[in-house]
Amino acid sequence: MKELIRTEELAKIYENDGVETHALRGVDLSIQEGEFVAIVGPSGSGKSTLMQILGCLDRPSKGKYFFEEREIHTYSDEELAKIRNERIGFVFQAFNLLPRLSVLDNVMLPLIYRGTSPKEREQKAKKVIELVGLSDRIDYHTSRLSGGQKQRVAIARALVTDPKIIFADEPTGNLDSKSGEVVLRFLQDLNEEGHTIAIVTHESYVAQSARRMLHIVDGEIDKDEVITKRRIVAQEGFSK
């Protein structure tokens, strides 16, 4: 397997009114292509900070971050934006869809910043919308969708650029358990197909559906384990 992500002594220090908060204290980790990693830990442990840095949404204060051997820690804002656009997909707890745009427009959004032609944008978006089972809602404003449907739109949006890795930050956090299961099942399916996935969660049943678990405590990797008894989420199909 090829190494996708490597960090060396990754640290993040927030400074607030002269008070320093060490969110990450020297994290060394490596993620291979095709992995399904759950980053777990109590709130305030730094797991979200780690995901944000790995997702190129934020910069480390110290240490090195390599993504496909690129030295991300040296990158400018513009270069980071390009990496996010071409290599990374995001699924957020709060969905972060543009409520007054249609499903199709939301999914096409990342492709705009890539300069994809409108025709190709629509083709690609329609394909992933079908994949998440929302073809019949393609023209709906996303404000009219249920939580589970919204998160599926978000997954479609993350997938449309065919990223190297998808980061999901508490993707089931705002969903009822049934919709949460559907989303997890979907992430598992994507992983089966070869997508690399990193999921941040504080719920163990969610983490159990991954293949590897990284425990973060006080900004450090406390435990890095392979999940032996993996929970395979039941195939329920998408509720429409």
């Binding site: 804002d77 513009e78 934006a81 390009k82 656009n85 995001f90 543009l98 959004l109 990342p110 910043y113």
Partner: peptide, 16 residues
């Protein structure tokens, strides 16, 4: 502002 954040997360540059 949130929309701007989201667009940036999706790869929008400051310029765009």
């Amino acid at each position: 502002t949130r929309e701007i954040g989201l667009r940036k997360a999706m790869g929008a540059t400051r310029k765009s």
